[in-house]
Structure formats: C-alpha cells, structure tokens
Design a protein around this nucleic acid. Structure first.
Lengths: 188, 188
DNA sequence: AAAGTTAGTAACTGATAACTAACAACCGGA
DNA sequence: TCCGGTTGTTAGTTATCAGTTACTAACTTT
C-alpha cells in the first residue's frame, strides 16, 4: 500500500473518475468502481470529497481544462489555416491515444443537460464558462466567429461518429478533414 | 384504470421511456419511473419487454426513426440549398417543441459508446445502421457527401450548445444558421 | 354461463448503491 | 519515546434497484 498526501490522492481520484465516468456515465459509475481503480477503500473517497457530485464536478472540470490547454498549446504562434491544421491534428491524436477524453466530454454534456432540465444550474454554469474558454482558445488563432463555429461543429461530429463506433475506413469519414480519421475503435 | 392491448401499452411504454431516458440516461432511469409515467405497475413492464435494455433499445430505435422521418418529410421534393433550409427549419422546430428528442439522441450516443467500450456491439450495430439511414436521408436531397457532412456537423454542434444550455441570444449562436437559434431553455 | 385467455397488481428477493462511524496504522517532531 | 495529526480501513446503515412469484380482474369464445 502506497501512502500519499491527501492532495496527491485526490489527484489520482480525479484521473480514475474521468475514466470511469467516461465509460459508464454519472449514474452508471459507482464510487466503489472509482475507489477500486485508485486502489483505496470506497469510504475513503468521502474523506477526500464531500459527495459523488463533487467527484464528477472535479472530473468534468479537469476534462474541459485539459482540452482547452491542448488547443492553446497546439495553436501557439500560428494563425488561420495553419492553426486549424495544428489543432485538428492535436485533437485527433488525443482521440486516438486516449478516447476516454472524448467520451467524458459527451458524458459531461448529457449530465449537464439533465441537471439543467431538472432545475439545477450549478453544473451548467461551470460548463458554459469552460466552453467559452474553449471557444476563445479556438477563436483567437482562427480570428473570427465563422471559422470557430465550423471548427467546433466538425469536432462535435467527430465525437459522435467515434462514439457510435464507425471504423476509420467507413464512408462517413470521407469528407472529413483527412487526419481526423480516427485510428482505432474504443476498446476497454 | 384504462385497459389497453399489449401492443398499445408497449407503444406508451416506448414514449414514456424516451422521456425518462432522455432526462436521466440509461442508468439514471429506473423501470419504476417509466412504469409510473405510463400509469402501470413496474412488474408489468417485464411482461411487455424481456428486460431493461430491451426497453432502451426500443426507445432508441423510435428516436432515430422519428428523426429520419422528419428529415425525409421536410426535404420532400426539394434539392440543394432549399433542402438545407427546409431540414434546418424542421430540426430547430423539433428542438424547440420537444427538446427531449435531442437529449435522447445524446443519451443514445453515450450509451452506445459505453456498450461498445464494454465489448457489447448489439446496440452499436443498430445505431450505426440507423445513423446511415439518417445520413442517406440527408445526402439524397443534398446531392453529395461534403454538404451532408457539414449539415450534420452543424447539427451536432447545435445539439451540444442546446444541451449545455446556452440561451438563444448568446454569442455562441452568432454564426450559426439564423433559424437555428433555439427558442427556449430546457425546462422540465 | 362455463372455460379459457389477456391485462394487470401486491408483495417480495437478492444485490448494490451512497454514505457514516468508529477504529487502526503510520510518521514527523518535542 | 510518546504524542497528535494525517492517512487509511472495517463494519455497518438505509435506500433503491431490476426482476420474480403468485395472484386477481376483466374480457372472449363457445
């Protein structure tokens, strides 16, 4: 058994939570499953976080933050067409290497929609704020709304196609930015 | 108590299941909740369907089918630019009038992704087949892949923006096809 | 009106969920 | 060396879940 500081442990809980929530969603993920993945007892999670929603919130925040950072880094010093290519490449690389990130994003969107519909706006406010950071991170190098919208629209389509499991050689990918052909299926 | 034929009852279960699954997802929805909405006892659901996945599958199928039909009807007799407008208008109308449909679609995508990742491809195969029907329904009047891809990409972006609750006057909507500004938030 | 079928329910089961309380092991410093 | 705070566990509670069993009420057929 490895002993860590509470802060370090919280960090590994967030990572584990991201993968678990990514695959099974908020309700489908038990705190037991997260604890097992971390290698810690389930009740101890409640020492590190006040409750389950707080764990999800932390995972959600981390997920958005990572994505924004990825776009910022990929487009650093580039403008227009070049920035589009750089960001698209970076995104497809992430999807291929850690498809959980994409799944987690989609889980975040549906979880927020559910919370909003139920009258709870705390999740929604956080996500909208973080989405705007993403938006700005993309729109600065792309210099304008039109390109930003198109770029993000294609991103959302890619998310969906990967989520429902179309293999890279399928014709649905034909007219999508070539490097966006995702290299593998989602397997556990 | 209204007595119906099993077939009619199954139909109302599918409708109720669509709304419940739309708001709370597969795991978040109890069979009890569906039964309550239908106005029938929970055990009786298991007379009408073999198990919970079967109920979800039926709801998922209905959801995709409705969407395909909507695009087919909207674009009937139209081509190119005109068809794009007609389909976009029809879609935004649906979103405004019954936002549950949009939510259910997103729930379907994440549920399928989860099932695929867990090695169960039965859901995935069904959804990919139905997605291709949607694809074809759009690509016939649009006469080509490029336009189809763009149309669907914008659709997915709209789904996401509505899901996370951006109000219609927000700047994220600025460069999106004007009629696509969705007229209200998601409320229960 | 008897015989058979279909629609529906009440009461329960074993499993699993989130969360709590009480205790134990570790570790740096006086 | 013992002391106090931090890291962790074991044992337990209460609630809810999907699914089953055993039954009743209403309609159809003969």
């Amino acid at each position: 058994m490895v002993r860590m500081s509470a802060e370090e442990r919280r960090e590994s809980v967030v990572r584990a939570a991201m993968s678990e929530f990514a695959h099974r969603g908020y309700y489908g993920t038990s705190t037991e499953a997260i604890a097992k993945r971390v290698g810690v007892s389930q009740p101890y999670l409640f020492r590190l976080f006040p409750n389950k929603p707080a764990i999800f919130l932390a995972a959600m925040h981390r997920c958005m933050e990572d994505t924004v950072r990825m776009f910022v880094e990929a487009s650093e010093g580039l403008r227009g067409e070049e920035a589009v290519h750089a960001m698209a490449n970076a995104y497809t690389k992430v999807i291929a290497e850690e498809p959980e990130r994409l799944l987690m994003q989609m889980q975040v969107y549906v979880a927020v929609a559910a919370a909003e519909a139920a009258g709870d706006h705390t999740f929604g406010e956080a996500v909208r704020r973080e989405w705007m950071e993403l938006w700005d991170a993309v729109s600065i190098p792309l210099e304008g709304y039109k390109d930003t919208t198109t770029f993000l629209a294609y991103g959302m389509l890619i998310n969906t196609l990967v989520a429902i499991g179309f293999p890279p050689e399928h014709r649905v990918w034909e007219e999508i930015y070539p490097s966006a052909r995702v290299k593998g299926r989602l397997e556990k």
